[in-house]
Design a protein around this nucleic acid. Structure first.
Lengths: 226, 226
DNA sequence: GTCTATACAAAGATAGAC
DNA sequence: GTCTATCTTTGTATAGAC
């Protein structure tokens, strides 16, 4: 870009600031990041930040919009290859727990939680955030319903509710995984999701749904508190 | 208490500050609460806060300890009546989503998330927090394993992993519920948890699991069996 | 549209009196 | 142990030059 126009520079500044916000909000949290730190990370100054977004909160809202789009794209991409749900869940789980591959690798869960927390306290953020979650549930649930329809199987819940449960497991397990990875092995989550939807857990192969009970691991050697 | 001793007053101040911290950290978030606001809410001044805890962070750590105990007690209390898991899950779900009954009513999820977020960023908080989650998983899993043993049924996963999945569903669904309560009805969570553990879902309503289910993209209101 | 400089407010933290 | 008073740092936000 030898000659960036004004419009280009403006757009570039917006992007830079939003990216910096995604990074820093995830890493340190909204309130722990100063406007100056954001501007610095974006290679600009606070003046530019205020000019574009009116302040930190405006930047957060803009970030939320971008975040919405990115999530939609990512989900659509991952849901596109409609393999069996087992491999499917594996991909989703990894996309939620991946260490630091791309920019929103490990930060993803942190930013997600940061946004949730902010949204739970401030309706101005909570409303669009709630809409976003609804869209995720819908995409997730309809993807699975499509798969079920294609394979002739049936899901035990309607699509939106299926999406809620799947998203719930992924989120809740990811939170635990972040603090103690060993406590939530990938296989457990994948099997759990399969079992949740009435598919046979522990069996990613073409096993009929209730033919055999899941591998009832029988390590009953825990302390007996009686 | 006509004559509070020094020790009593000291203990009282600690308690007051910790309670205020639980309340305010949940409501506004750690960084959004000033030391003065905490002291005010506790009926003390910042001097007392620094004297007791050395600062806001020390107060957070103390709060985490208390939080651990309270969670353990609460879980133990709720797990004690070993009815069937269905009613069991119902109680747990309600304890996680209750509006504002007692002090840690609605605030519970907020504070929980706030602590998680802080812990994910700061190992000093993350380590004890991780231990706490491990204990919760253990209590949860062993309670269910006990029940399974008592009724002769078998769980598809070992106790700790069962606890991880159950806690995951509860947390992940609670996060969604907070933003959009209608999207995560209680029945869905209870049925989901039952299905997850290999128990028959849909048990609360004596309706067979595949009774009627709206097709994908069917805007018809789903049959709400209640 | 962006930068420099700065006014203004708020928070963290401490010293010393009681 | 607790309070009052205060010091220092940090952050928000804006005004005006380029």
């Amino acid at each position: 870009m030898p000659r960036p126009t004004q419009a280009q520079r403006k757009s570039e500044t917006r992007t830079r600031l939003i990216d910096a916000a995604a990074e820093l909000f995830a890493q340190k949290g909204f309130h722990a990041v100063s406007a100056e730190a954001l501007a610095d990370a974006a290679g600009r100054t606070t003046g530019a930040l205020y000019s574009h977004f009116g302040g930190k909160e405006g930047l957060l809202l803009a970030l939320l919009d971008v975040w919405k789009e990115r999530t939609a794209e990512r989900l659509a991409g991952e849901l596109h290859q409609v393999a069996d749900p087992g491999a499917h869940f594996e991909v989703m789980w990894r996309s939620v727990t991946r260490p630091a591959d791309d920019d929103r690798g490990d930060s993803w869960l942190l930013l997600e939680t940061e946004l949730w927390l902010y949204g739970a306290r401030d309706p101005l953020v909570g409303a669009p955030l709630a809409r976003r979650y609804t869209e995720i549930r819908a995409q997730l649930g309809e993807g699975l319903a499509d798969w079920a329809e294609a394979t002739g199987s049936t899901l035990p819940y309607p699509p939106e509710e299926t999406g809620a449960l799947v998203l719930g497991v992924l989120l809740g397990c990811a939170l635990q995984h972040r603090l103690e990875p060993a406590a939530v092995p990938e296989e457990l989550v994948v099997n759990g999701l399969s079992g949740l939807l009435g598919l046979t857990p522990g069996r990613k192969t073409d096993r009929p749904r209730k033919a055999d009970r899941p591998r009832k691991a029988d390590p009953r050697r825990k302390a007996d508190p009686s």
